[in-house]
Amino acid sequence: MHEFSVASSIVSSVAAEAARRGASRVTDVYLGLGELNFLCMEQLVYAIGIISEHTALEGATVHIENRPARIRCNSCGYEGGAQHEEFGEFHQSIPLLSCPSCGGSTDILEGRECEIVNATMVMEE
């Protein structure tokens, strides 16, 4: 449960950029969320909504793009997506970090990020 502190970083970064550009408000915030981090999308959107009250982000719509993991094999050099294992009883899908090609160990290239991609701002003229 660290959505609140992450949401706080997002709101302050976007609000600071809006102030720097002289924008009066932010209407949309676009985030990229990797599948290997532990942030819960719903809680993150909820926390951003609460924290952005009385800031330029108040009422902004938060759009989240879910990003799949990308891995690189230490043995055969495979680079690409990870296989997933479905656990019906837990309603969840677990990315497996073994190489889908040769079973070797891999490094994570992408999938742990929580990125502010862009934001739409309104400039009064």
């Binding site: 970064s13 550009r21 929580c114 862009n118 309104v122 003229e125």
Partner: peptide, 12 residues
């Protein structure tokens, strides 16, 4: 007013 799109590409 005008609408601007601001790129961040910043990982929190």
């Amino acid at each position: 007013h005008k609408i601007i799109d601001v790129e961040f590409e910043a990982d929190v």
